[in-house]
Deep mutational scan, measured.
Amino acid sequence: DMPHRFKVHNYMSPTFCDHCGSLLWGLVKQGLKCEDCGMNVHHKCREKVANLCGI
């Protein structure tokens, strides 16, 4: 059981939050991507995600 390793990410195409399902808005640093499993989340959704990475 490992925690997610979220890192700020710049998305080049429209991407949706894997937690709430809404679009990650903006041009740069729109959200966070787990370096291990690739989960994408809003900055505000980070604390709502279970801290178990499903690598």
Score class of each variant (00 low, 15 high):
D1P: 03
M2P: 06
M2S: 05
P3K: 15
P3Y: 15
P3F: 15
P3D: 14
H4W: 00
H4G: 07
H4A: 02
R5L: 15
R5M: 02
F6Y: 06
F6M: 07
F6S: 05
F6G: 02
K7T: 13
K7C: 12
K7D: 04
K7I: 15
K7N: 04
K7H: 05
V8F: 04
H9Q: 12
N10C: 10
Y11C: 04
Y11K: 02
M12T: 05
M12Q: 05
M12L: 09
M12G: 09
M12A: 12
M12D: 04
M12F: 15
S13H: 06
P14F: 07
P14W: 08
P14D: 03
P14R: 04
F16S: 08
C17T: 00
C17F: 00
C17R: 00
C17E: 00
C17D: 00
C17G: 00
D18L: 07
D18Q: 12
H19N: 09
H19V: 13
C20K: 00
C20R: 01
G21I: 08
S22Q: 15
S22P: 05
S22E: 06
S22L: 14
S22F: 06
L23Q: 03
L24S: 03
L24T: 03
L24E: 04
L24V: 08
L24I: 13
W25H: 03
W25I: 07
W25N: 03
G26A: 02
G26P: 02
L27I: 06
L27Y: 05
L27P: 02
L27F: 14
V28L: 10
V28C: 05
K29R: 11
K29C: 10
K29D: 06
K29Q: 10
Q30R: 01
Q30E: 02
G31S: 01
K33H: 13
K33Y: 14
C34Y: 00
C34P: 01
C34T: 00
E35W: 12
E35V: 12
E35D: 12
E35M: 14
D36Q: 11
D36K: 07
D36N: 05
C37S: 02
C37V: 00
G38V: 11
M39A: 12
M39E: 14
M39F: 14
M39V: 13
M39D: 10
N40W: 02
N40A: 06
N40D: 10
N40I: 09
N40R: 10
V41E: 02
V41C: 13
V41F: 13
V41P: 00
V41R: 05
H42C: 06
H42G: 06
H43N: 08
H43L: 09
K44G: 11
K44E: 06
K44F: 06
K44H: 05
K44W: 08
K44C: 09
K44I: 06
C45S: 01
R46C: 11
E47R: 09
E47L: 09
K48M: 09
K48T: 08
V49M: 11
V49D: 11
N51G: 07
N51V: 04
N51W: 02
L52E: 12
L52G: 13
L52D: 11
C53N: 08
C53W: 05
C53R: 14
G54D: 14
G54Y: 09
G54H: 09
I55G: 11
I55L: 06
I55Q: 03
I55P: 05
